[in-house]
Structure formats: C-alpha cells, structure tokens
Design a protein around this nucleic acid. Structure first.
Length: 508
RNA sequence: GCCGCGUUGGUCAAGGGGUUAAGACGCCUCCCUUUCACGGAGGAAUCACGGGUUCGAAUCCCGUACGUGGUACCA
C-alpha cells in the first residue's frame, strides 16, 4: 500500500476558525498515526477574494498549534508549487481532455445570460434554477452552437468557461469514512463550472487534479462539501479512474449557538472563534483568537479533538502524542456538534493545572508587563503563579488572581471588615505589627504561630482575625492561604500592609 | 422548493436488540477552607414523534417532524 498522504487545503481569505483547525487536526492525526505526510495546499483560485497576510496567518496558527506540515508553499516539497494560483497552466489541459471525451463543454453565457435564465425558470417550486440538464440546451454553449461558431468564438478569445456535463439518471455513490454509503441522483446535480473565464480552475477541478498529482490518499474536509462530492467523484472517474480516488471523509460541522459557527458568533456571544487574533487588512476589524483569549495550544487542540470524536473510553484529556496514538476516523461522529465555551474553558483550566508553570509563564509575564507590572524576579513569579493556578481557567486570569503579590491594595472590601472592626481588633493588629517587626525567621509556620498565639492571648476568634488579615493583604476575600501570602510578599511588606489597613479601618 | 447529511439530559457524549441508559461540562446541595478556587460526596436533567419487525427496541425497518449544509465563473 502506498504511503498515506493527506492535505489541508485552505483558501487564504481571512482568519482560521475552529472548524478549520479541527479539519487540520484530524488530517494531521490521521497522517501521523499512519506514518504519512501532511500537506498544506493553498487554494487561492479566486483572486477576487485574496486577502493579504491570510496565508502567513494560517501558517502561524499551525505553528502555534504544533502541527508542522511536511510539504507546503512554506516548507517546499516534491510536488511544488503548492499554491494553486501558481499551478494555473496545469488545469486547462484536463478541462480540454474532458471536453474531447464529451464529459464537459464550453459555455459562452454572460453573467447577464445566467441571471436571465435564473429569472426565466424561477417558479414557486424551483426558486433557484440550476444550469443543468434541463436548461443547458437552451443556453449559449458548445452543445447548442454550430461547431464553426464555437471555433470562431474560441479563436477570437471570447470569454467562456468550461462546464461539466452531468449525465442524466445515474446514481453516483461513494463510501465516506464517516457517513458510509452516500449516493446522489446525477440528474439533480448541476453543470458546475470547472474552468473560469479568467483561466483559473474552480475548486471542483483543482481539488481533483491536485489531489491526483500530489498523490493524496485520503481527503478530509468539512461536511459543507458533501453536496458537491458527486461532481468530484465523476471527475475522478473521467480523468484518473475511481481506483485512484482518495478515500473521503466529510467531517461534521461545528455549530455556533445558531447554525454553522461563524466569526460573527464570536462577537455576538463573547467567545473567540479564530485560533489567533485576526485583523482584516481592509476593514481593520479585529476578530479575537483563542490564543489571545488566554488558551494554551495543548488545551485548544485537546478540546477540538474531542468535539466530534472519542476513543470509546472515559478519557478526556489527551496530549498530541496520545491523540496520534488513539485517533481513528471511524470513531468520528456523523452529527454536527455545538461548541460550548464553558467546556472549552474547563479544558484550558485542566491543562493549566497539569502543565508546569514554566511552560506558559512567559506568556503570563507579557500580560503582567502589558498592564504595567514589571517582573524582575522570575523565581518569585513562578512561585506566585504556582500558588494561584487552580483558580485560573485562562492565562488572562492570572493577573487578577495574582496582582496583590506585587502591589499593595488600593482599596478594601469594607463590608466584610467594618462590622467586625472594634477596638480589640485594632489593638490586636497594632501588637501583631510589633511582633512581626521582630520576627527573625519569616516563614509560614512562624507567621501563623505568632498570629495564633497573640489571638489566644487576646482571646479573639482566630478565624475572624484571619479574614481581616486577608482583606488587609489582598484587598478582598480571595486568594491562597493568608499566611502563604504573607510569607511570599515578605516581612516588611506584610507589616506595611497591615499597618496601612489598620490606620484606614480605624479612621473610616 | 429541491438535494444531501443528521437527531441519546441545556452542551459534549458512551452504549448499536434484554443495561438501574456510562462519563464530562454547566447548574443545585453538602463537606473541606471562617476567603476565592482546587478537591470530595450527593442531586435535578436524556433516547424527537408515529407506525412496524420482535417474546423484548435508545438500538433494526418505514414514514413524519425538526435541525443543518448545499443549491455561485466562493472556497
């Protein structure tokens, strides 16, 4: 059996969303599991939709996710070029081969002609007429025009396209790795354009020709392509033989709160849809990415992998290696899945807890510095992150959960302290400051022992005092153990914060 | 409209003729902590509907409904 080769074939028209990344992932996992090659081919046959920077952006996303292609326009490879716009000259000959075999034809209809046809044939039962067997003989094409006129038009370079001539009354079927037998009635499929007036192929021709030329063995794509699969199957049959056709798998769609997930859903419902931040160069509109929202690539990959796939066990957390080991296409769900941001955050939290802080502290450091907190002591920073990570589902949560390790609170949760602030409390903290000022060995147990001894001596409930101490050090009722915080921020700063708060509470 | 695909709790899902119909997220209660989390123990909540087939259907078949994708010289 020949080596497994799969491809991800994006068109560089904008950001890379969830569904796209999952398509790459399944391609990648399948290829790596079989020891095959993962190819990225850029499908840029529509120059009107070209967006500057989109291709680089896609490769950046793949890099962030840890999925490096074996072949691509960036990585090179034996089947270059990997950009369809650079392969333009290749396609025409296949289109012409189809025509000479009677499987396709030239069509000279103008956009106005097409619009007229759609209008003329439009009825209540058929709101969107297709260019198909029912109308093709009434259009302007090499099937209806006299041969010499066709020759003449071609000779004078009249604008034309090449369309596939869909046969009538055939059942076109194929085996999909996820949906199993899928079949279509060829009479109901339209004469899709194969080669456009500008000489570029459409997706339909290009995908078949390139998959053949690049020796692709398995072709995975979103389910939105299933409807046009009969065109591709026929093209394979006419051009290269069904025996050489790759195995198809049409992946279930990832749904948003209302229908197929779109980038609009992100802004609308408050969660990212793209892998990384994407700014449209034309409109300057920014669409948020999972990365910038505070996701770890490990979590992003993990949550995408199990959205539509499971290995039949109860395992939910998988590293890339484990995914490669366990992935199989036949356990991919046929039904679409609705994306749940709450669960996505849970995955991220699990990975934050699981991975050593050193794995992501550089990113957290950037967040702190962008908010004006300079990190000078990396050892201390690591320790701080370690202390708060179980309350941070997102990387961006670390700031709020840990700023107080760096700055003295500017305000206090007065509602919690005020009702309990009486003279005995004031005295207690005044004495505590004196004691702490002379504490020689500043560690958690000495801090706690001194505190509790003094409380016992003063006959005040320890718990109540601890709560007040917390508010004094943190500002609010949050964070790790109070004495742990005191130890971390140090003797001088602890004393400083207690004294500042004591004065504040006594005068308010 | 037509064509394709799909349908197990709110969400992700296991299970594919006989099960008390797993598990996870979320939600609720309790424990832990006089904080917030983490962790632990419980709880509410599901086989779209109608017909078959069968001793027995969440599981097989047929309809219906609903959802979703396509219906471009876009991918």
């Amino acid at each position: 059996m020949s080596k497994v080769r799969v491809r991800f074939a994006p068109s560089p028209t904008g950001g890379l969303h969830l569904g796209g990344v999952r398509t790459v992932l399944y391609n990648y996992l399948f290829a790596k599991k079989q020891g095959g090659d993962f190819i990225v081919r850029i499908e840029d046959t529509d120059q009107t939709r070209f967006v500057a920077g989109a291709e680089d952006y896609i490769f950046n996303c793949l890099k962030w996710c840890g999925m490096e292609p074996d072949e691509s326009p960036l990585h090179g490879g034996p089947y270059a070029p990997y950009r369809q716009s650079e392969r333009k000259e290749l396609y025409r000959k296949y289109a012409e081969q189809l025509i000479s075999n009677g499987f396709a034809y030239y069509a000279f209809d103008t956009p106005e002609d097409l619009e007229k046809m759609r209008n003329d044939f439009k009825t209540a039962e058929n709101p969107s007429p297709q260019y198909d067997g029912n109308v093709r003989m009434q259009m302007k094409n090499s099937l209806t025009l006299p041969e010499d006129e066709v020759k003449k038009l071609l000779a004078e370079n009249a604008r034309h396209v090449v369309r596939i001539k869909m046969p009538a009354g055939e059942t076109i079927s194929f085996t999909d790795m996820i949906h199993h037998e899928v079949s279509f009635d060829s009479s109901l499929v339209d004469d899709k354009v194969l080669l456009k007036a500008d000489g570029m192929p459409t997706y339909h021709l290009a995908v078949v020709v390139d998959d053949y030329l690049m020796k692709i063995t398995h072709a995975f794509r979103g389910e939105e392509w299933l409807s046009s699969a009969p065109v591709h199957v026929l093209l394979w049959k006419y051009l290269f033989g069904l025996d050489n056709m790759p195995q198809w798998a049409h992946l279930p769609l990832i749904m948003g709160p209302s229908g197929k997930l779109s980038k609009r859903d992100g802004a609308k419902y408050g969660f990212p849809v793209f892998a990384m931040n994407w700014t449209d160069p034309k409109t300057s509109e920014l669409t948020e990415g999972f990365k910038e929202r505070g996701f770890l690539p490990e979590a992003f990959i993990n949550l995408l992998a199990v959205l539509g796939w499971n290995d039949g066990t109860e395992q939910e957390l998988y590293s890339m290696e484990e995914l490669i080991e366990n992935f199989s296409m036949d356990r991919v769900h046929a039904a679409g899945a609705k994306f749940d941001f709450e669960k996505a955050k849970w995955f991220n939290h699990e990975w934050i807890k699981k991975l050593p802080v050193t794995n992501y502290e550089a990113r957290v450091k950037e967040i702190f510095e962008s908010k004006g907190i300079e990190i000078k002591d990396d050892i201390y920073f690591t320790k701080v992150l370690e202390l708060v990570k179980e309350r941070c589902p997102l990387l961006t949560d670390f700031f709020d959960q840990a700023v107080f390790f760096y700055i003295t609170p500017a305000s206090y949760d007065e509602a919690s302290v005020k009702p309990k602030w009486e003279n005995d409390k004031n005295d207690f903290f005044a004495e505590l400051v004196t004691k702490y000022n002379s504490t020689a060995d500043w560690n958690i147990s000495s801090i706690e022992t001194e505190f509790k001894n003094l409380a016992t001596e003063k006959n005040i409930k320890v718990g109540e005092l601890q709560m007040i101490l917390r508010v004094m050090l943190v500002g609010t009722k949050m964070g790790p153990g109070v004495f742990v915080i005191a130890e971390a921020i140090g003797n001088a700063e602890t004393v400083n914060r207690i004294e500042k708060a004591r004065v504040y509470f006594s005068s308010h």
